[in-house]
Every structure is written in structure tokens, then in C-alpha cells.
């Protein structure tokens, strides 16, 4: 079990953004996390990655370790990488530097070695730069390495955010709406990259996504949230026909064929 949450909850004032979610994720799985707007998907991500502090009684375990009260950088050190809905790339840093920050935890020299400019530090710096250039080539941004992230297009920034997460050499990759705002061609491209990454590095992945095609095509299993609670879990086909899911997404009064049409679009 790579990730397990028990009774995970978070309230903001009177709003229960995440309400007692029990969630389990096996090593090597690709899991989709879907649900209507405001159903708690992003809050769930923020809780797991340590950006929000969970409410009393919640428990999060990552790789067998209790991480309920860990700070984000310590959770990152356990091999959890995430992307953000709003990307949060480091705009005034170059594309290569963005990846180097992602690789932060794997750069093995300290400040003293940096000041002294030791051979070890120089070799290490050369190694990480070469590796990050390879990764940039893999996601197709190698030509932009020296450009500032703010000079990239939105689609490229999305790839950069994914690259920065991959630079962390994660065991668990959490993607928060990786395809939002991409054209259909770019969505296909992104799907290829995600599947490629998964096969190449044997990752475990959680994808939050509104574009259902992304989830349905890549995930073996899907979890559905609504109003902060887990309302369904299963294969994409099972979830597609689940009554609670259809209600949550589409309201109560819809005919079966109409439902199908929306889900496929």
C-alpha cells in the first residue's frame, strides 16, 4: 500500500471540504479522481501533499509512514510529487532551473562545497544538468531550456510543471487537472507522455481531471468524490454507470442516453 488515508477530513469554517475519506492506493496503480467542481479533489491533494493540515482524527500514511503532520518538503522527500491546477511554475527562472529545483532533493552537495567549488560539487552539478536536459528532451522542451518560464505558452508551461514533478524522481505522482485548457491534440500528446512516464519509471499516479476522456483512457480505477465524500470507486466502466455518480454529475432528472452523451463528450 503506497498511500492510505483514514477518515481524512478538512473543514474551512462551516464547509466540510473533505469529509472522512478513506482512500487506498496500490503501488503501480494509475488512479483517476473525479467529481464535480467543489467536490474536494484539490483539497484532497493539498492534504496528502502536506500543504493543508488535516482535521483531528485524520490519518495519512505514505509508504507505511504516518505523514499526517508532515510539512510539504518532508512529504516530497518520501517521493511524492504533485502538479498544481494553476501550474505554479517559477516564472522568473529559466526552464532548466525549474527542473533543477524539482531535482533539489537529489542534488548531493551542501553550501560549503558550493562556496569552495569542490570537484565533487562541479561533477554533481554537471550530472544533474545533463539529466535535466534529458528530461527536457523527453517532454519536448529542450529547445527552451534557457528561456524564462514566463515566456512559455500555457501548454508548454503545463509540460514544464509535469517535468518539474518528474524531476523529483517520484514514486507517487499526483496530477491536478493536467489537461485543463489544452487543445484535443495536446491532450493526446499529454496522455502519451503520462503513459510513457509511467511505463518508463514504474510510477504510481493519481490524476484529477475534468476531461473525462483523460481519466477513462489512462486509469485502471476511478474514485469519485462529491461534497467531500467518496461516493463511488471502481473501473471506469463501473463508475460510468453508477447511479450516485450520474446523480452527482448531472443532477437527478436525466435520461440514460443523455447521460451517456455527456460522459462521452
Amino acid at each position: 500500500m503506497l498511500l492510505r488515508t483514514e477518515n481524512l477530513s478538512k473543514h474551512f469554517g462551516g464547509l466540510r471540504a473533505v469529509d472522512g475519506i478513506d482512500f487506498e492506493l496500490e503501488e503501480g496503480e494509475v488512479r483517476g479522481l473525479i467529481g464535480p467542481n467543489g467536490s474536494g479533489k484539490s483539497t484532497f491533494f493539498n492534504l496528502v501533499s502536506g500543504i493543508y493540515r488535516p482535521d483531528e482524527g485524520s490519518r495519512i500514511r505514505i509508504g507505511g509512514q504516518d505523514t499526517t503532520h508532515f510539512e510539504p518538503h518532508r512529504i516530497a522527500a518520501l517521493g511524492v510529487a504533485r502538479t498544481f491546477q494553476l501550474l505554479r511554475v517559477f516564472s522568473e527562472m529559466t526552464v532548466l532551473e525549474n527542473l533543477l529545483v524539482g531535482h533539489h532533493l537529489h542534488v548531493a552537495y551542501g553550501p560549503v562545497a558550493a562556496v569552495l567549488g569542490t570537484r565533487r560539487m562541479r561533477n554533481e552539478e554537471r550530472r544533474v544538468r545533463e539529466e535535466m536536459m534529458e528530461l527536457l528532451a523527453f517532454i519536448g522542451l529542450a529547445d527552451f531550456a534557457a528561456m524564462l518560464a514566463s515566456e512559455l505558452s500555457v501548454g508548454q508551461r503545463r509540460l514544464l510543471a509535469l517535468g518539474r514533478a518528474m524531476a523529483m524522481r517520484p514514486r507517487l505522482l499526483m496530477l491536478d487537472e493536467p489537461a485543463a485548457g489544452l487543445s484535443p491534440v495536446n491532450v493526446d500528446n499529454l496522455l502519451r507522455i503520462i503513459v510513457g512516464l509511467k511505463e518508463r519509471y514504474g510510477l504510481t499516479v493519481i490524476i484529477v481531471e475534468h476531461i473525462l476522456r483523460v481519466v477513462m483512457d489512462t486509469c485502471e480505477k476511478v474514485t469519485v468524490l462529491d461534497h467531500g465524500q467518496k461516493i463511488a470507486e471502481g473501473t471506469p466502466d463501473e463508475v460510468k454507470t453508477d447511479h450516485a455518480v450520474i446523480e452527482a454529475y448531472l443532477g437527478r432528472e436525466m435520461e440514460d442516453d443523455e447521460v451517456r452523451r455527456v460522459l462521452q463528450g
Binding site: I51, P72, A76, A77, E92
Partner: peptide, 18 residues
Amino acid sequence: RGFMAVREDPVAAAAAGV
């Protein structure tokens, strides 16, 4: 690079392990 990441976006920096 860690300094710059903190300047640009502390949340993203923390998530990257800084």
C-alpha cells in the same frame, strides 16, 4: 536555486522538496 524558488512560489517550492 532554492532561494529563487522560495521567492517565486513558496508553496510550489515546498512541494518540490525545498
